[in-house]
Amino acid sequence: MNWLHFFRNKQEEAPATAPQAKERLQIVLAHERISRKGEDFLPKLQREIVELVARHVSIDPERVNVSLERGGDLSTLAIAVELPGPEPARRVS
């Protein structure tokens, strides 16, 4: 360890966190500004998807899982609908 390293140590220990704060804010605010204008579309979207799926197979609305990951350029909305499995095979006694 040389002298320079020794004195720089303090800074390396604590990397600046402000840039992270800025990036997080930019992303979350970009999304909020959009949703401020319109109505909250997610509940409606979910309802319509559930209705659509339910038209074809019977599903339990409890088993619908919606997850979202907001990103800067790209957000992913994942809707997992648990479909009923095939009838359990009957055991032949």
Binding site: I27, V28, S67, L68, E69, R70, G71
Partner: peptide
């Protein structure tokens, strides 16, 4: 949500 770091995952 921000303080907990989950702001990008809020759906409902």
């Amino acid at each position: 949500d921000l303080i907990m770091g989950v702001e990008r995952r809020v759906v409902f």
